[in-house]
């Protein structure tokens, strides 16, 4: 097989399969920038996938489904926000609870929808650009939600590093006391970020069910939410690096499938481990840099003073 074509196929697949994880990773990056980690991202993704699918079946509109999915993910994450920010709960415990809640709840409410048909989102090639050789098929032949995911990367970077709000958000993650003493409301900002993180996970889930697979089944995210949480660390809490991590993950998925179609046998189990192995490697190699990049307040319990 033509090596150029092979690379094109792998990269096209990388962009395709990275999207749900990319949404979630971007959301969790913002989320963790305020010092709140959400291990329940998996649950939020499932909420988004399930509620998005149900709304699309009921209304026939993929857009309404995507919006509902995002909101569902956001609302579920508010529970995490309440537990962590108001009650001062342990972030890991609360996040895992959220994951189980999302898994169980969506299995219950989504059951009648397992065999339903939807139109959802189709691939929309961008005129002219999609005809560019090599680049066109890789970048410009996707569904609208996929385009949105990649446009969000620079948008979130700009928000975090070039706006006053982004500065406030980062300030809360570095020192709640300092942020508070400069007139900011750390709890409110953390709430907003957690809600945003949940919405993005919901949108990632909705992209999975409405645009990527056009299908709903319980537990369909298969751990993508956890991969996203790991990729935040891999990306050292930076949206552009996080996006690169998501693409690397998408590339691993796509590469192993494309290699199989050529008759090259690589254990799918090995490649399923790859994102975690990569994160682990990054932590080992750049442990110091990673520590510096980590928001100082990450994981710290909220107390009454802050």
């Amino acid at each position: 097989m033509d090596p150029i074509m092979f690379i094109q196929f792998v990269l096209t697949g990388a962009f395709r399969s990275a999207t749900p994880v990319l949404f979630t990773t971007l959301g969790q990056t913002v989320n963790e920038k305020t010092g709140v980690a959400n291990l329940g991202a998996e649950g939020c993704m499932l909420m988004g996938a399930c509620v998005g699918f149900i709304v699309t079946v009921q209304t026939g509109s993929g857009w309404l489904g995507a919006i509902a999915g995002a909101l569902a993910g956001g609302v579920l994450s508010l529970l995490h926000g309440y537990l962590v920010i108001n009650c001062g709960a342990n972030q890991l415990a609360s996040g895992l609870t959220l994951m189980f809640l999302g898994l169980g709840l969506t299995a219950l409410i989504g059951r009648p929808y397992v065999s339903q048909q939807i139109t959802g989102f189709d691939v929309v090639p961008i005129p002219i650009l999609s005809d560019i050789p090599f680049i066109g098929p890789i970048l410009f032949r996707h569904d609208v939600l996929t385009y949105l995911a990649y446009l969000l990367v620079p948008a979130i970077w700009f928000f975090l590093y070039r706006t006053r709000w982004g500065l406030s958000l980062r300030a809360v993650g570095e020192s709640r006391i300092a942020a508070f003493s400069t007139g900011r409301n750390p709890a409110l900002i953390a709430y907003a970020a957690v809600f945003f993180g949940g919405m993005m996970a919901g949108l990632g889930g909705a992209q999975l069910s409405l645009a990527y697979t056009h299908f709903w089944v319980e537990g369909m995210t298969q751990g993508a939410g956890f991969i996203a949480v790991a990729l935040v660390i891999f990306g050292m809490w930076h949206p552009v690096r996080a996006a690169a991590g998501a693409l690397l993950y998408g590339g691993a998925v796509s590469l192993q499938l494309q290699l199989q179609t050529l008759g090259v046998g690589i254990s799918p189990f090995f490649l399923q481990m790859l994102p975690y192995v990569l994160t682990l490697a990054i932590l080992l190699v750049w442990a110091r840099a990673s520590n510096r990049a980590m928001p100082a307040e990450l994981g710290r319990v909220f107390t009454r003073q802050t």
Binding site: F9, S209, Y212, T213, F215, V217, M220, S254, T261
Partner: peptide
Amino acid sequence: SGNWCDPAVLAEAANSLVDQ
């Protein structure tokens, strides 16, 4: 696919095969 039901991998596998 390495799983009895992993929708994302199934969609990607199907797309890969169609690409080829």
